[in-house]
Design a protein around this nucleic acid. Structure first.
Length: 373
RNA sequence: GCACAGGUGGCCGAGCGGUUAAUGGCAGCAGACUGUAAAUCUGCCGCUCUCCGGAGCUACGGAGGUUCGAAUCCUCCCCUGUGCA
């Protein structure tokens, strides 16, 4: 899932995203809550209509911002008081507020409000954080159940949620499943906000740091609360890669294979393949888009730092094996020139390529799963 | 010709007697980036070696001088800008 924090996948337009075959994108509650504000988005018909995106959207609850903006927040049982990074004003987000906001934004999949535990952390701290996330999960669900009809498109539930395919280790939400979603919406020219067949789906989030038993406990107790999909949060926060690999693999074992299992914030092309093989169904990561803006491009030959002087005279395509329109048309020399010259087009082309590479990678993974490979 | 103001490392520009190989910025080179406060951040950036701790050269227009010590003060010269003739 490409990440579009502010209802925009940085650098690419919605029609480019569609062309790239992005089937679902992420957006962020905290950021939209600050600007333009949930009520504004609601008044404009919800985030789909606001950004003109007919395909699924998942909003993160703001739980990650509890972590990433930790320097400017105050955490209590009730939630988190933030100092807005935009104007310094005080803002409050707790499970109820995060649900209210996400219902108001109207994404297809919304996330429970959690605390993304930092790394490293003492076991006692991890436990405490996990317990808080569990209490918040309960409150998120309670609020959601009571208010889930209050979506911005007029109370008519519209969205279906992705279903994992059968079988452990093969559970990717595939393009076919998502295509069903699209046709449900677009087949009759209907948009999510104008009517459909399902409601928003609220996913729970498993925490527990790098403690295997706490991960298991978190998974089991989150499942007791009961969600249509489960996320694993708290990874990619600076821990050694092998450690997250082990903990993720172990956590996955305790989550139901017949429900979407979502690994939050991961990863590199190698990692997404690895985790998909393990049975992870959904992943999101800012890496392809951010790296693109910073001139780091993912190719079949590895990573390329396009600003390197060694590409100044390189007439070859960025990735000879890539079928994207950037690789089909422009040379490395030109891409380097655009980047070095600070041209806006550099961001666009680099992002198109990286997303293309990621989405192609996932298409291959799905294909392999279908073949039973 | 006269009067001011200046000439600093690839460029711009601080410094105006000693922790100065010389603040910054730009350009250049390399690296990082994983539920986005990120078109961001980090390192290198006179030359030559280095056991990466450092060592040695050459440097603030030029030439002299003052001083224990000068990019910084003095003298002369060269050049640039502005103004007046």
């Amino acid at each position: 899932m490409p990440v579009g924090t502010l209802a925009s996948v940085k650098g690419v337009s919605q029609d480019l995203l569609e062309e790239l075959g992005a089937e679902i994108i992420l957006s962020n509650t905290y950021h939209l809550f600050l600007r333009p504000g949930v009520e504004q988005v609601r008044a404009l018909g919800g985030v789909h209509r606001f950004m003109s995106w007919d395909r699924p959207i998942l909003t993160d609850s703001g739980g990650f911002q509890v972590f990433s903006l930790s320097a400017m927040r105050k955490l209590t049982e009730d939630g988190v008081e933030f100092r807005s990074h935009l104007d310094g004003s005080k803002k409050f987000l707790g499970p109820e507020q995060a649900m209210e906001a996400q219902i108001g934004l109207g994404a297809d999949i919304i996330m429970a409000f959690d605390e993304c535990t930092e790394y490293p952390a003492e076991r006692s701290r991890v436990k405490e954080s996990m317990e808080l996330t569990l209490r918040w999960a309960r409150r998120s669900k309670d609020y959601f159940e009571a208010h889930k009809g209050e979506v911005p498109w007029g109370g008519v539930p519209s969205c279906r949620l992705p279903v994992a395919s059968e079988g452990r280790g093969q559970g990717s939400v595939g393009s076919e499943e998502l295509a069903v979603l699209h046709s449900a919406w677009t087949g009759e020219g209907a948009r999510p906000h104008t009517g459909g067949a399902a409601t928003q789906a609220l996913f729970g989030i498993v925490q527990g740091g790098m403690e295997m038993d706490l991960r298991r406990e978190s998974a089991e107790r989150t499942m007791e609360i009961g969600f249509p999909g489960y996320a694993m949060g708290g990874f990619s926060v600076g821990e050694p890669r092998e450690l997250s690999r082990d903990v993720i693999a172990a956590t996955l074992e305790h989550l139901p294979a017949d429900k979407p299992r979502y690994l939050m914030g991961v990863g590199t092309p190698e990692e997404i393949v690895y985790y998909a093989k393990l049975g992870v169904d959904m992943m999101d990561c800012v890496l392809p888009t951010r790296a693109a803006r910073h001139g780091l491009l993912f190719t079949s030959e590895g990573r390329i730092n396009i600003k390197g002087a060694r590409y100044a005279g390189d007439e070859g395509p960025l990735d000879p094996k890539c079928g994207c329109k950037v690789c089909g048309r422009y040379s490395r020399a030109y891409l380097r020139h655009l980047y070095v010259s600070n041209e806006v087009l550099a961001t666009v082309l680099n992002t198109v390529h990286n997303l293309s590479f990621y989405l192609d990678t996932m298409r291959s993974v799905r294909h392999a799963i279908r073949l039973g490979a």
